[in-house]
Design a protein around this nucleic acid. Structure first.
Lengths: 230, 230
DNA sequence: CGATGACGTAACACAGTGGTAACATTCGGT
DNA sequence: ACCGAATGTTACCACTGTGTTACGTCATCG
């Protein structure tokens, strides 16, 4: 690193390819495109990019299968889905299969760029031991959260949940992935336990837990953690 | 004993220089400043500090080059980058060149101090042979803990445990790492023996062992040692 | 507008964790 | 070999964290 960040666009509409490509190149990214699902998959697996834009309706392999297979190959780069309007149930499916965000066509290039940039900021987070959350500081070394130097005690589950959120900000996180990451793949608990833990964590993070600043819920999916500023 | 730690601030904004200088002096550091990259580089090479605060946008030599050249000269002191908002993409580059951490302007002095102290934690301990623990003094040369001149006798295990804690303050320490450090990697003892030793050590460190000031327990994880004042 | 389902959250019960005292064993010095 | 100190082990208990359940509220959709 750090050469420019690499973006793979998997899209069959030539006009969209050109528009997206131009804009992302202008924004300083290294762009490659694939015109169908098969090409996209091989490219994603052999030369994994830093982020992938993925249309759902594609020749040969559709966006769902591509997404699932990429994730099955244990690639973790962010995936942003491009969906047509009125396909909300597709969004749900896509996010469950491991996509991180979506935009519905027609979309503004500004919005898309903003989402992409937010997702890519994750790489900066990973290396940090100290993370600023508004007026709070999360110290991963000390495994503690402080507000003006005062410790905010977190239980084990709360801490692991927050840690997972912080390392995956701005992304749609399904309950299932949260369960895997925080509770562990082999543990079986009710999915409502996630909600419960979210509630207690929210109450400690935010003064007004009723209008959460950090943990946003995504109906039918799960939650999304937003870092301040941006 | 306790020579003060030296911080070099390379920054061209006079207001920021004064603000940072005041704050770090107040925190007990020995501060020198350089107003451009050239001055900063010569200073860093001829009188290497214990840590450097480095702005990116600088006259004469920019922060990246300065960072790279300092590292090329095999100086290992920590470098904290100061970046303006919107330069986030460049941060990764800075880290690649050898920076250890960064803050984005505008930043809170509290956050910056926390980051600096974290990076200097080891030096802050190592530069002292006498360590003040509340009303007690730990003399690592003599392997003695005293309170008002009265020696508090510590057993072998207790001393090694305290020593491990003192060299790793403010960090979450797992029982397993404690066992490795104090008992040795090859010795097999029950993990409850750690708790047992903690109890006896607590009873000697603290008047109210029920509300420990120094050794905090982190449920499901292990313990964390907190030094007073920072 | 009513039905359905998802989420927030309070209440409760129970398992597991850690503090610690009592007991056992090892160690070290004479 | 003996004795006391140090160290490890075990057992008991209080407590807290956590999962479950239940209920209220809100959003969505027919």
């Amino acid at each position: 690193m750090t050469q420019t960040l690499r973006i793979l666009i998997v899209e069959d509409d030539p006009a969209l390819i050109r528009g997206l490509g131009d804009n992302f190149r202008a924004a300083g990214f290294d762009v490659t495109t694939a015109a169908d699902g098969q090409l996209g998959l091989t490219h994603a697996l052999t030369q994994p990019p830093d982020l992938m834009l993925l249309d759902i309706m594609l020749p040969k392999i559709n966006g769902y299968d591509l997404c699932r297979r990429v994730r099955h190959a244990k690639h973790g780069f962010p995936i942003v889905m491009l969906t047509a309007k009125g396909q909300e149930e597709e969004i749900v499916r896509g996010l469950e299969l491991g996509a991180d965000d979506y935009v519905t066509k027609p979309f503004g290039i500004r919005e898309l760029l903003a989402r992409v940039k937010r997702l890519l900021r994750r790489e900066m987070i990973d290396s940090k031991e100290l993370i600023v959350l508004g007026e709070m500081i999360l110290d991963r070394d000390a495994r503690k959260l402080t507000h003006d130097g005062e410790e905010i005690p977190l239980t084990q589950k709360e801490y692991r949940l927050l840690d997972y959120f912080v390392t995956n900000p701005h992304r749609a996180l399904t309950r299932s992935s949260i369960l895997d990451a925080v509770w562990g793949r082999s543990i079986i608990v009710s999915h409502r336990s996630v909600d419960r833990c979210i509630t207690t964590l929210r109450s400690k993070l935010d003064a007004q837990p009723s209008q959460p600043k950090f943990i946003h819920t995504i109906r039918d999916i799960g939650y999304r953690f937003e870092l301040p500023e941006g």
